[in-house]
Simulated assay, not measured.
Amino acid sequence: MTATRKTALVVAPGRGTYGKGELGSIARLHGARFADRIANFDAQRRDRGQPTVTELDGADRFSVATHMRGDVAAPLIYTATALDFLSIDRDKFDVVAVAGNSMGWYSALALGGAVSVADGFRISNAMGLNSQTHGPGGQVLLQIVDEYWRPVPSLRAQLLGLVAAIAARPGHALALSIDLAGMLVFAGNEEGLAALLAEAPPTPDRDPLRLAGHGPFHTPLMFGSSDRARAELPPSLFAAPAIPLVDGRGHIWRRFASDPAAIRDYTFGHQILAPYDFALSVQVAVREFAPDVIILPGPGDTLGGAIAQALIGIEWQGIASKADFAARQASNPVLLAMGRTDQRAAVTGGQ
């Protein structure tokens, strides 16, 4: 170990991170070095009669209708994340823990060694398809922090109260889906979502956003996805992690004290059917493992804001506002996003 080696928390991104700007990035960044890995992923897709990762990443143009669909987005995101993780310069960084956001949990399983990289693709690919097996509905994102990334007083409580009231109405399903610190994602059926959009109090900076192509993730409406996952993805895929994993409850799966069957049960049960507290997972991870840096693999870097807002929520190392975070990034970066060229070079050693 070199004297300059830093400890790192790695956070795997979820849906919505492979966009127009990421088209072709898998081939460009990883095609030469990880040709065998990509060939394995392509073979898994081909065996299921699906377009390969190479074909999808190599398309002439980005298509929202195609590339944002769960059965396409999931394998592309997993591939970019897993290969970025394998590109981290381990002479410079000691990965001490792994977390993920929503479907990024499936990536985290592989990054942490609870499943193999090939089986991580199998799981992500299957869940991308299974994620389309649900009752009617979707997700809406609402911002709850101001322009300085500080919480708007009482807004979180107002929204949670409103959601509980709507969910109590006949025919309305609505619940918290993902807590992103500065933003809350709610999911439900069409009646529940319509009521939320009609009755939500004013939110700062951005209007409520219906997330295109997303189902009612992390709610009981996803029971079909959970059932299919349990039927299709056997216990033999899972092992105890080699690197500690922090899940969407803030629970830590430790290397020598984790039951693989329990990891699988969480992955295909609670993780699908109950809220995913991403902010808490980051906060627990930094408090427990005190990393020098947080590494955000690709694709993209859109999760960076949520990570920063999670740190602000606990005033991690004195970071209490957007300005504090920007100043820290300028002087001694705490967050290294591999979707950014300069920060990527710092993580990979220029590989």
Rank of each mutant, 00 (worst) to 15 (best):
E190K: 05
R150V: 06
A164N: 14
E22H: 06
R344Q: 08
G313N: 10
G188S: 04
G112Y: 02
G21V: 05
V96G: 08
T81P: 02
H67L: 04
S124R: 00
G161P: 06
S226C: 01
T348Q: 09
V286Y: 01
A229R: 11
N332Y: 03
H30D: 06
A35T: 15
F278C: 02
P235K: 12
F289D: 00
V53H: 03
F256D: 03
D265Y: 14
A8P: 01
V246W: 07
A330I: 09
V11N: 11
S116F: 07
A80E: 13
T66K: 04
A118V: 14
F325S: 15
G137L: 01
V152A: 00
L109V: 00
P220T: 10
L180T: 08
A110Q: 02
P220W: 03
E55Q: 13
P297R: 06
Q139D: 14
Y148F: 13
G31C: 12
A279P: 12
V10I: 13
L180I: 08
R150A: 03
V145N: 03
K6P: 06
H67T: 09
G138E: 05
A306K: 13
I263S: 07
A327C: 15
A285M: 03
A114S: 01
W253C: 06
L159Y: 02
Y148R: 13
L280Q: 03
A108Q: 13
L336C: 02
A157P: 11
P208Q: 06
R90N: 15
F41C: 11
R156D: 04
D91R: 15
G305K: 13
R340P: 03
A168E: 15
L142I: 02
Y106V: 07
S321A: 11
M222V: 08
N40Q: 14
W149K: 12
A126D: 05
Y106H: 15
L159C: 00
F34E: 14
G300Q: 13
Q271A: 14
L311C: 10
G120D: 07
A346C: 11
R33A: 01
R48M: 10
D247N: 09
A114C: 00
R122P: 00
K20R: 12
T203A: 02
N332A: 08
A65W: 03
P201N: 07
G31S: 09
M183R: 15
I243M: 13
G224K: 05
E147K: 09
T219I: 01
D42H: 12
D207Q: 14
L9K: 02
E22V: 02
V10N: 08
I178W: 14
A165M: 07
Q139R: 14
R206F: 10
A43N: 07
R287I: 11
R46D: 08
S331D: 06
L176I: 01
D146L: 02
F217W: 10
L336S: 00
M103H: 07
D324I: 14
Q283Y: 01
L197M: 11
I144T: 01
P170L: 04
S225W: 07
G224V: 11
V96P: 04
D60W: 10
D91E: 15
R90W: 12
L76K: 05
G24S: 09
R328E: 07
V53C: 04
L159E: 01
V293Y: 11
A240Y: 03
T348W: 10
A261V: 10
Q143K: 10
D324T: 10
A212F: 09
T348F: 11
